[in-house]
Amino acid sequence: MADGQTLLAVNHLTKQFGGLAAVDDVTLDIKRGQIFSIIGPNGAGKTTVFNLITGIYKPTKGEILLNGRSIAGKTPDVVLRNGIARTFQNIRLFNNMTVLENVLVGQHAKLYGDLISVIFRPPYYRNAEKRALDRAMELLAFFGPQMVALKDEYASNLSYAYRRRVEVARAMASGPQLLLLDEPTAGMNDSETAEAVGYIRRLREQYGVTVLLIEHKLQVTMNISDQIAVLDYGKKIAEGVPAEIQRNEQVIEAYLGRKAATA
């Protein structure tokens, strides 16, 4: 899948919260077309890496390069315009908007939101809205006919798995090059998890999107990922293909070992 070209380069990324280094000198190299997973125990700094990449936090040190251009410190909407979309660990949908409206908001960057366009509705405005609606319907159809049937339902009325899907649809709506998924299968049962794994793969096939994934379920990560990076206490302790990670002693100790001990 991967064609070897770097899409996102994270170099020596560091984020300090007071005295605590939530992310400490992390370097990642995500190739175009990869499904790249970040794993690690709770509090390892995975979500902080996402928040740094998407501009919710500003890095203390380090570079974030998308296609060789720096996006570090840019605001979230600018990062999205540059081609990085994300979902959140604790689904953040617009609950009092319909499913369709949620996906339309995801395309806001491609629409005209100035007063002149909105009031006079010239053809370019209407065409953009029309295209947005078409794309929204296409994305809902991607998640199956049930999703399409739910388009006028309020987001908060949906079941958990559907809410996850709407969030992915909203992120995909902007047509990103890189999709950041923060625990897309958290709280799901086995069949829902399998479905999620399926649509993540299909997203890459159908839309050519590169996926950066945070995932707790090891069978998911091992099965889906081209490359895995392991974080512990904000530091990257290992990186490699799934087979290498499974054999890595440091990983087994930091992550699997600890998990086995508590289980």
């Binding site: 998407t54 919710i56 605001t75 979230p76 909407d77 999205l80 315009r81 979309a85 994300r86 959140f88 953040r92 949908l93 617009f94 609950n95 009092n96 908007m97 908001v105 995801g106 395309q107 806001h108 960057a109 491609k110 939101g113 909203r170 992120a171 902007s174």
Partner: peptide
């Protein structure tokens, strides 16, 4: 509804 999510969805 949610400022952070709106910004992440591309709303300036």
């Amino acid at each position: 509804e949610d400022e952070t999510a709106a910004a992440a969805a591309g709303v300036n």
